[in-house]
Write a protein that binds this DNA or RNA. Structure first.
Length: 423
RNA sequence: GGAGAAAUGGCAGAGUGGUCGAUUGCGGCAGUCUUGAAAACUGUUGAGGGUUACACCUCCGGGGGUUCGAAUCCCUCUUUCUCCGCCA
């Protein structure tokens, strides 16, 4: 959520920045400032009435103590009217505050200066690429056929017990998944991230905290009877562990990692691009989350990018890094780098990680602050990234490591899998 | 699921209708001492809104009520603890 105090002072900056997302925010921001003005003026009037009322009360107390009941009762009558008007003003103030809140909820984060202008994924800017694209054998298969051929994943079985987008991993396929999760967690913890196991369902307040609610409600599975949401990413429970906290500056940075399944309804897209592991309703992901001092958040973002790079380098997968353009940037993000692995058999890039700095956007909703060295309470910066999302990494491994005899296992994963070849 | 107790500032923990936005301890910050650090001592320190700055307003788990006045009394919800039941 954007900070209204900052909008008040830098309206033009916000209009300019949001234009990068293709949003003309001129009139919305005008409404924001009007609602803010309305809230403040009705609050000021209310405060005045309450101040008067408070001073009467104090006086009445004193009068009773000195036994001047007559005078006290006279004053009591004066407070009746004040009460009535305070009630009215309070309603006015709450209505304006609510309106302001709704307007602010509707506005996405403002992009960082580095974010290129653009409308969709075609305008994303490639900033890095590494790894050789392998030459595959004749008749190389896409991963969904490899999965079937070597009996690694059963998509139909998942359809039977749940529905499309809920695959069943089997045998070496299941073991490879487990190996990847352990490998990722080990990489993250040895880079200093603390491992967490968190709930896979969260309450409404957590959904609001990280920005999934209210604008992306339809993307989460909702358990109505208990009013809980299945998490779309570990980001939600992990970041919300710190909701409402006031940290000391010496506690920063806080770095967490966690493996969770992720649940996404993602309605609306069909065809070859969602075949196999390309898009799922349930998938596994290892996430890294950082809570940072504002001065350090962009250095931290670079550090996270370097960390993910190292993992992909070890896996020897060909990948590239994109800086997302304004039109493709997530609602809550100020700057995002997407990592994509090249799927040779499909001849296309698959997104496997997204690393973002949210600056104060989440922290403002979360009321997650720290006491800085100057004694002032400030909002922290939150960041997170996938390190990594499993299905497409698995797809990339299966496709890029295939030979005419079977599938090789990347060297670093062999100790985690207990085998080096799938045939 | 049933019965009882509780929820207070970053943390711990006093406070049962009127100088209580809250005693105290720890922690934090600043200083003295020290080559430096620790210890000790001194000072300072809740959050939010509002103001150029003050003033002022709100906040003692959430919501509602009683009262001129509520951390304090009443209702309700949530959570935690103890006991019982059930159970991986």
């Amino acid at each position: 959520m954007l900070q209204v105090t900052d909008i008040r002072e830098n309206k033009e900056k916000y209009i300019k920045a949001l234009a990068k997302r293709g949003i003309d925010a001129t009139s919305v921001l005008e409404e924001v400032l009007n609602a803010d003005e309305e809230r403040r003026s009705s609050q000021a009037q209310l405060d005045e009435v309450l101040a008067q009322s408070n001073s009467y009360s104090k006086e009445i107390g004193k009068l009773f103590q000195t036994g001047e009941t007559q005078r006290a009762n006279e004053l009591k009558e004066k407070t009746v009217q004040l009460k009535e008007s305070s009630k009215q003003l309070n309603e006015q103030m709450l209505a304006a505050a609510e309106k302001l809140q709704q307007l602010l909820y509707s506005l996405p984060n403002i992009p960082n200066e580095l974010v290129p202008a653009g409308t969709d994924e075609n305008d994303n800017e490639q900033v890095y690429a590494e790894g050789e694209i392998p030459k595959l054998v004749d008749g190389a298969l896409p991963h969904w056929e490899l999965a079937k051929k070597y009996d690694l994943i059963d998509f139909e079985l998942g359809v039977k017990i749940t529905g499309a987008g809920f695959p069943v991993y089997k045998g070496k396929g299941a073991r490879l998944q487990r190996g990847l999760i352990s490998y990722f967690l080990d990489k993250n913890t040895s880079a200093g991230y603390t491992e967490y196991q968190v709930p896979h369902l969260v309450n409404e307040a957590s959904g609001f905290g990280t920005g999934q609610l209210p604008d992306k409600e339809g993307q989460m599975y909702h358990v109505g009877i208990d009013d809980l949401y299945l998490i779309p990413t570990a980001e939600v429970p992990v970041t919300n562990m710190f909701r409402g906290n006031l940290l000391t500056h010496s506690e920063l940075p806080i770095t967490c990692t966690g493996y969770t399944p992720c649940f996404r309804r993602e309605a609306g897209s069909y065809g070859a691009h969602v075949r196999g592991l390309n898009r799922l309703h349930q998938f596994d992901k290892v996430e890294i989350v950082r809570i940072e001092h504002p001065d350090n958040s962009y250095a931290a973002l670079d550090g996270m990018v370097a960390h993910v790079k190292e993992i992909l380098r070890e896996l020897k997968l060909p990948y590239r890094i994109l800086r997302l353009c304004g039109g493709d940037l997530g609602f809550t993000s100020a700057l995002t780098y997407d990592f994509e692995v090249f799927s040779t058999a499909q001849d296309r890039w698959l997104e496997i990680s997204s690393v973002s700095n949210f600056e104060t956007f989440q922290a403002n909703r979360l009321k997650l602050r720290f006491k800085d060295t100057d004694g002032k309470n400030k909002l922290v910066h939150t960041l997170n990234g996938s390190a990594l999302a499993l299905p497409r990494v698995l797809a990339g491994i299966l496709e890029n490591y295939q030979t005419d005899k079977g599938i090789k296992i990347p060297e670093v994963l062999v100790p985690y899998c207990g085998f080096d070849f799938i045939d």
